[in-house]
């Protein structure tokens, strides 16, 4: 039966727990801390993070990475993916990662291209 045993550790075994309930509360604490960091950064918007890196602001990269971290812990611990067979994990994660990355790449490049076309003078900013 699935989940007959839970893997009771997070952060690659750095933190070990006695019971599943304990692990859940620890994950909640972790997710709350990450969210608090995100909100604090979003409100204060430190000037040093507003510089551009790889065609996006550094602060936006931080937001995206923190979001993926949160998504990982929600899927792995709340949705019990940590306890599933690796085949099931892979068929969910690889499918989504591949298709979404593909979609993001195509549409963002295209959006950027349309912006360039408009910006370079075919349509002027119309008051």
């Amino acid at each position: 039966m699935e989940n007959s045993t839970h893997k009771l550790e997070i952060f690659r075994g750095l933190l070990k727990f006695k019971s599943n309930e304990q692990k859940i509360w620890a994950v909640l604490l972790f997710l709350s801390i990450v969210t608090t960091i995100e909100v604090a950064l979003g409100i204060s918007k430190p000037e040093i993070l507003m510089n551009t890196f790889l065609s996006a602001k550094i602060i936006n990269w931080i937001f995206i990475i923190l979001t993926l971290v949160k998504a990982y812990y929600i899927a792995w611990d709340f949705m019990h993916l940590r306890d599933e067979k690796s085949g099931l994990q892979a068929s969910i994660v690889i499918t989504l990662l591949f298709l979404i990355a593909y979609l993001v790449f195509i549409l963002l490049v295209e959006g950027n291209y349309i912006y360039d076309v408009i910006y370079e003078g075919f349509v002027s900013w119309n008051f």
């Binding site: 989504l96 979404i100 963002l108 959006g111 950027n112």
Partner: peptide, 27 residues
């Protein structure tokens, strides 16, 4: 899980469309 994967693709479709429009009007 089948349903969740397909629904996740629906949501990412919406969010990426948002990103598209935003990149198009980035300024």
């Amino acid at each position: 899980w089948f349903f969740i994967v397909s629904d996740a693709l629906t949501f990412s479709g919406f969010l990426v469309a948002y990103g598209f429009s935003r990149f198009k009007n980035i300024d």
